[in-house]
Design a protein around this nucleic acid. Structure first.
Lengths: 200, 200
DNA sequence: CCGTTTTGATTGAACGTTCAATCAGTCCGT
DNA sequence: ACGGACTGATTGAACGTTCAATCAAAACGG
């Protein structure tokens, strides 16, 4: 997810952005230092300030980029709504995921908590939630039009499912890998969808 | 919630703990400093080290205390399971809540993210989740015995509902007060419970 | 095509601040 | 006068940020 760009960035500014992303994933926001970013892309830490105003600006741009990437990836393609839907939450509900995904999820949650005290982060996550919510309701509407889903308040369902998935992220980012509760949540989420969304 | 003790602590050690709690609520973990704790309880900041090993030990003890309090408060009393259940998630789903509750929720989420990199915090939140999960399944079992709820996998439902509520906490801690999605989530959660738990 | 100038990238050293933790010494009840 | 409670000053490390200096390459003028 949103990792392609960060693998072979061209231009120094982009390399710094990619290095920031990787450092964030590995060490988290709390332990992010300019010198660690320097280590990551093998240049002097002070070079960062030749391309960016401040550490915060850098992190925010990184976050914005991540959200943008996801946005461009979702807006289209609402064929096969049920498969898309299961794919969507499957990405979060799989057990035994790789370390990178685990770290990425934890990073998103950690950055999100910054929003409670910082206006700029709040804006980003507000937008991110809107993007996801629109994608989900599009999926639901498409399913209803095709007769695969039953009539329902799509925005309400979208907000609800998204909240649950946000909860999955937070619990995942704290608990051990492959916890037992994951299967429970998946099963009960399926049951909810059967009861409220899917047409039997 | 778990605020009684922190209002009139006796003994210096307890005063420090209470001051830590209040400072945490007001400034969050990231901006918690020893001197800010000192300001809060009107003694010298260095006194902290006369009673506690380190800052981390202090915060951990504070968190442990919060969880303990909640534990003692829940284990009994599973009469009127439906009312208890609604009261339980009502506390998180009310709109227009006071600043203190908002801050308390944000604090819990912020501390929780520490768990991804720190074993000690992970243990605490693992325990906290177990406490909540047991409380919820007790409620559900009690409801089933009384014939108010239908037969279901209580642990599975408990894990699922708790995950959703965790998501509510995370979204609440980031978004503005009184957001529109809250009512959506509440309505859809009710619908889920009607469909899967409550006997009509 | 050569020499000069300009520009942007890059570096290492240094500064100023913040903060956890320490310590030597004072206060005070018994 | 002894011991625990308490304080203010201090230390040392970490870190964001600045800055003067270097370097490579491009642009340019003759």
């Amino acid at each position: 997810m949103s990792a392609e760009f960060f693998e072979d960035p061209d231009g120094t500014r982009e390399q710094i952005l990619a290095a920031t992303y990787h450092t964030l994933c590995e060490h988290g926001y709390a332990d992010l230092t300019i010198s660690r970013i320097g280590e990551e892309f093998e240049k002097s830490p002070s070079l960062v300030y030749h391309h960016y105003e401040s550490k915060d600006e850098l992190v925010l741009e990184c976050l914005e980029f991540m959200i943008d990437r996801f946005e461009h990836r979702t807006t289209d393609d609402v064929d096969q709504p049920r498969e898309r839907l299961e794919e969507f939450f499957g990405w979060l509900l799989e057990s035994n995921i790789e370390v990178e995904r685990q770290q990425f999820i934890a990073l998103l949650v950690e950055l999100r908590t910054l929003a409670s005290r910082d206006e700029s982060y709040r804006r980003q996550f507000l937008r991110s939630d809107q993007v996801l919510e629109r994608y989900l309701s599009n999926l639901l509407n498409s399913g209803i039009e095709r007769g695969e889903f039953r009539e329902c308040e799509t925005e309400q369902v979208a907000a609800y499912v998204l909240t649950t998935l946000t909860g999955v992220m937070l619990r995942r980012s704290t608990h051990d890998i492959d916890p037992a509760w994951l299967e429970d949540v998946r099963a009960e989420l399926e049951a909810y969808l059967e009861a409220r969304v899917y047409r039997e």
